[in-house]
Each structure stands twice: as C-alpha cells, then as structure tokens.
Simulated scan of single mutants.
Amino acid sequence: MSQLSLQEKQKDHALLQIGAGIKQFVRDNMGILIGFLVLCIIISIVNSSFLTANNLLNVLRQTSTNLYLALAMTMIIILGGIDLSVGSVMAVVGVVTSSLVALFGAPVLVAVAAGLAVGVLFGALNGYVVATTVIPPFIVTLATMNIARGAAYVLTDGKPIRVMSDSFNFIGSGYIGGVLPTPVLYLVILLIICYLIMNKTKLGRYMYAVGGNAEAAKFSGINIKRIKLFAYTFSGLMAGVAGIVLASRMFSGQPTAGNGAELDAIAAVVLGGTSMTGGYGRIGGTVIGALIIGVLSNGLNLMGVSSFWQYIVKGIVILVAVYADVIKRKRG
C-alpha cells in the first residue's frame, strides 16, 4: 500500500511539474501565442480548407525543415552570434547525399551518414574560426555560405541530381503509420533533445551565461570556445538533417536548395522572442515563431496571393513583431 501511495505521489508530482511548465510557457509567450491564434482564425475564416487535417499536416511538414535550422539558430543567437551558412550547407549536403545514392550506388544509410558528416564539418569550421579568432560570426558564416554554395554548384555542374531510390525518398516523403509525416517525427525528437539541452543541462545554462556576459562567464570558469564550437557544429548538423530531408522530398539534390533558408530560420528565432544581442531566448518561442511563418505562407498560398507579395507581407509581419517585442522589453 505504501509503495502504491509513493507511486501515486510521484505521478502527481510529475503532473504538477508538467502543468507548471505549460503555465510558464503560456506566460512567457502570451503575446506571440495570441498573434498566432488570431492569424489562424483569420485564415480559417477566409479559407475553410485551412483547418483540414491534410492541410495542417502539410503545414507541419513544410515548417519542420525551417525548425531544424531554427532550433540550432536559437542557440547561436543566444550566444550573440549568427549563422548565415545553413541554407548553403543544406544544398551541399543534399547534393553529396543524392550523388552517393544515385551516381555511386551507395547504401542510403552510408549516404546519409556522409551527408551529415559534411554538415558537421562546415559547422565545426564555423565554430572553430568564430571561437579562436576575432573575426565576427557574420563574416565567418558569410564566407562559408559562399564556399558551401559554390561547392554544391561545382559538384553538380549546376544541374539537379535525380534520385529514384524509394528508401531514400521515404526519408522526407514517407509516413509513419500512414498518418504522421516522417519530417514531423524527426522534428519531435529534435525538439525534445534541444529542450533538454537548453533547460536541463549545464551546457544550456552556459550558453545563456556566455550570451549574457561573455567576460563574466569566462571569469566563472566557463570554456567559451567549447560552447561556441558546440553551437555552430550542432547548427551544421541540423543543416545536414534539413538538407537530406529536403532532397528526399524533392527526389533530387539541387544546388539551389535552401536558398534564403537562413533568413527564415533567423526570422523564426526573432519572432519567438530571442534577443539578437544574446543572453535571452526560448526553444518554445522559436517553435511558435516558425509556425507563424509556416501558417502565414500556407494561408497566403490558399488565398492565391502571389509569391512576390508574400515576401512583402512576411517582411512587414516580422518587422512589426520585433518592434512590439522591443517595446514590451523596454516597458518590462
């Protein structure tokens, strides 16, 4: 009886912790949550097909690629850095993976591992240079952005590489149980990993400390170089995942893939309330920010709005959201 009572108390305690976490999440992101709900309501009124199960799954599938990048970008921006290379790394990883499968007949697992290794190498290069030199992260990642994009064009001679492997195409276009898109499954796993890193480990606390005050963190004994190296390497890994999933969805490795993806990732992070000056940000906010961008794009497509105008609308929404966040923080 006592053992059963103890188990019940532990269960109640766990439920209380989950409830407290949800309340804290809503409290921290109240403004952006309201904006997200209003956006969904407006789009659903204008076009009733928005709330269909197929369309919502499609939004999640499309948003997942941006969120892979945005999760790692959140860590980097919390550190006070930036990574402009992720879109180009997506392209070169997709090209390498597709080439190995389509042109060299490599097993899919081998090709995926090689592609992820390429992403990690680019991320580690960014992290090493940022951590060991005084070159600003903007310049470092701008350089690697051009290197990666150039490599993608060189490897393909500017032409897409078609992949006819069903097992490879399942990575980004398949369904689990006939219902859940595979990219969404990867996203759930990565969300859990990133949440645990940022909220339950010393590494996450060190990131906030370094972003808030690098000098104080250094005198506290935190290895700043190691923290930066991890964040940028992780960003390269996430770009690799996004590149492989995108190549699988398009059934080809394309040197133009991921064009502008870094801007969407940064926009999701900023919309989610992460400070561009470093030291503050939440994974949950980034998720909402990415969903806003995904829902906005989907809604504009359903309404038949030209893609040219979509760029303008997205820019205005991002500008207004960031300005509102700045005002809120000043008042706070």
Rank of each mutant, 00 (worst) to 15 (best):
G278I: 09
L4H: 03
N29H: 15
A124L: 15
S44R: 12
K314S: 02
V317M: 08
R162S: 10
I43A: 02
V313F: 07
G35Q: 10
S307W: 02
P107I: 12
V129E: 04
F122N: 00
F168C: 05
I18G: 03
V179C: 04
P107C: 11
Q24I: 01
M238P: 01
G240S: 07
I292E: 00
G119E: 13
A148N: 12
L237C: 10
I244P: 04
G177T: 03
T74V: 07
L142V: 03
V92K: 02
V188H: 04
F168W: 06
S167E: 12
A148F: 08
N298C: 05
Y208F: 15
N259D: 11
M73N: 12
V188R: 11
Q7P: 00
M30N: 00
D28W: 02
Y186L: 06
V46G: 01
G240H: 05
I77S: 10
L39S: 07
P107Y: 14
L103I: 07
V46A: 15
N54M: 03
I189V: 15
D166C: 07
L155C: 05
S99T: 11
M238L: 13
V188N: 09
D166Y: 08
Q3V: 09
T156K: 06
A148T: 05
A14P: 02
A217H: 13
L16Y: 12
V245Q: 00
A117K: 02
G281T: 07
V130N: 01
I41N: 04
Y68I: 08
V134G: 05
N47Y: 09
Q3E: 13
V140F: 13
L191T: 07
T52H: 07
L121P: 00
L69P: 06
W309M: 12
V118S: 10
L16P: 03
G243Y: 13
P183I: 01
K225M: 12
S88W: 11
A152H: 09
V96G: 08
F25G: 14
P137G: 13
V154W: 05
G284H: 06
C194R: 00
L51Q: 02
I135D: 05
V95F: 15
A231S: 11
V322N: 08
G253R: 14
L39V: 00
M250A: 09
Y195K: 14
V86T: 15
T74D: 07
K200F: 06
N47A: 02
F219E: 08
E8M: 13
A216T: 14
I189P: 02
Y280A: 07
L196V: 15
G19H: 03
I327T: 06
G289T: 02
V295T: 05
Y186W: 09
T274N: 09
R205Q: 15
T144L: 09
V317F: 14
N146V: 08
I312W: 01
G21Y: 06
I139L: 11
S64P: 02
G94Q: 08
E262C: 04
P183D: 01
N126L: 05
G31H: 11
V26E: 03
V241I: 15
V92C: 10
L57I: 10
L229C: 04
N146K: 01
E8P: 05
L125M: 13
